[in-house]
Amino acid sequence: MPGELTHSLWVVTLETLYMTSVATVLVVLAGLPLGVLLVLTDRGGLWERPGLHRVLGTFVNVGRSVPFIILMVAIVPLTRLLVGTTIGTTAAIVPLVVAAIPFMGRVVEQGLREVDSGLVEAAIAMGSTHRRVIVRVLLPEALPSLVRGTALVVISLLGYSAMAGAVGGGGLGDLAVKYGYMRFRTDVMLGCLAVLLALVQLVQWLGDGVASRFDHTSPHSRRAHD
């Protein structure tokens, strides 16, 4: 039995990793431009478009306020259209991505807003194109907080994926509900929890590590004199 349990845990962990990592890639690809657009189109932004900004903002707010479990059911037709089925790990990726894009958009927006507006001003004064301001100034300056924010998004994707698993998506959530809960297998439940905990810790640790690697804002050896 312990051998079998370990095997099942291994399989569902791989399923969870699959769902989360594919979803993360798609979420970053979509959330990054969304966040950039949110900042650019805002009042006082480089590409002020109040109408578009309001539309994007509303989309993000609506997306973020729908509970995941409801969103998952609500977009079933979309999932079927894209994947051909609504059951299984691949099908679970669709609601994961849809749920996390608005979150990622806000994370990116937040990170970009933290960049000192003086740096943008300096870049403009040097004759930069808007494109260069975004690619060479805004994104690199925001990189540490973008990495930290992405870790946050990945952690909530892990949580969402467990929820998706509970309704037929596979993964750790599936195992925990079917065996740990319904068949009173406390050992399975604890195993699933331990793996989830470890994954969250790992993502957090990786995020912090990579972020501080890119963070050059603190003086490590301050010099007193000119």
């Binding site: 003086g118 690199p140 050059h216």
Partner: peptide, 11 residues
């Protein structure tokens, strides 16, 4: 142009 708070790119 130069600035009071230097506005150097920290990254």
């Amino acid at each position: 142009m130069i600035f009071q708070h230097f506005n150097l790119f920290s990254s």
